[in-house]
């Protein structure tokens, strides 16, 4: 029976090859666009997460406070349930880091400041939170503590990235919605044409005792197959294309690698493929089921 259903399903799809091809292409376009946006959104989310976990809040203290007083203020006030870690950075450590980062170990530049630390009185605490969304609230709390002079944090960058992420999500949603509507119309037409073409066969089946399931399931399987092929093709294309683009990015942009490193496709391909296959097969199967129910009077 399974063999018969699948054989008939393939025959149905072959009945009007152009309709089938158009339907699969439309589904493939929708899935392709979804995959592109999924990849971009995943990368932006990972980027935000990297910032959340590596770039923290930097707290500076009043200049007259010594190291012990600063540590006392931090230990008794900074540790809340939102804090993942905090680290004391002395003014010497800050200066060493600055020299390394900006003078790039060029001794002649560093010598100009020999015996002097321009960052004296710039001891600070670097604080990492569990959840970046609590940052604003936490910073406001820190600012109220006596002895705290200045608090630096990257709220604007996170906000920009979150907004880009949201914008891309909305845009992709609207685009995919339009494409899904087109796909639904095309799939429905393909199934309707196939059912008209096979009307005689359906009537004979009905009269010799085929159940509704036997008559209708080849059409539904046909829809599922369109959904499957319409997903698997763009997924393969995206897999190859993404790896190709990532390799180019890695070769050409050494400077920002540490933060902006593209996410490996293996990290999200399973989720992306599951959603693409699941949604497209469900939509195609459901549309086929509705269409064939309308076109066969059993």
């Amino acid at each position: 029976m399974i063999k018969f259903i699948f054989k008939t399903a393939f025959q149905n799809l072959g009945t009007k090859k152009l309709f089938t091809f158009a339907s699969i292409c439309t589904i493939a376009c929708s899935v392709f666009i979804f995959c592109i946006f999924f990849s971009v959104v995943t990368n932006i989310r990972t980027f935000i997460h990297t910032i959340e976990t590596t770039i923290g809040i930097q707290v500076f203290f009043d200049e007259e406070l010594n190291e012990e007083e600063i540590k006392q203020i931090a230990n008794s006030n900074f540790l809340t349930e939102d804090v993942k870690s905090m680290r004391y950075i002395s003014s010497n450590e800050a200066w060493e880091y600055f020299k390394k980062e900006y003078f790039n170990d060029r001794d002649e530049l560093a010598k100009a400041f020999e015996g002097d630390n321009p960052l004296a009185n710039s001891s600070s605490y670097e604080i990492l939170l569990y959840n970046i969304s609590k940052q604003e609230e936490y910073v406001n709390y820190i600012k109220t503590i006596k002895g705290v002079r200045q608090v630096n944090y990257s709220s604007s960058l996170i906000n920009v990235l979150t907004n880009i992420n949201l914008g891309i999500s909305y845009f992709s949603f609207v685009l995919m919605f339009i494409l899904i509507i087109i796909a639904i119309i095309l799939i429905s037409n393909t199934i309707a044409v196939a059912s008209q073409y096979r009307k005689n066969e359906c009537e004979i089946m009905k009269l010799i005792g085929a159940t509704n399931f036997m008559i209708r399931s080849p059409f539904v399987i046909g829809g599922l197959l369109m959904g499957f092929f319409g997903s698997i093709i763009p997924l393969l294309v995206i897999y190859l294309l993404y790896n190709y683009i990532v390799n180019i990015v890695l070769e050409k942009t050494h400077l920002i690698l540490s933060i902006l490193r593209p996410v490996s496709i293996e990290y999200f391909i399973f989720d992306m493929a599951s959603i693409s296959l699941g949604v497209s097969m469900f939509v195609c199967g459901f549309v086929s089921y509705i269409t064939i129910n309308r076109h066969t009077d059993v």
């Binding site: 009537e203 010799i208 085929a210």
Partner: peptide, 20 residues
């Protein structure tokens, strides 16, 4: 109904065969 129809054999004037 399908199970009832399985007890019937039907022959039509225009044969109604599947031409493909």
């Amino acid at each position: 109904l399908p199970y009832y129809r399985r007890k019937l054999g039907i022959v039509f004037q225009n044969f109604r065969l599947l031409n493909d």
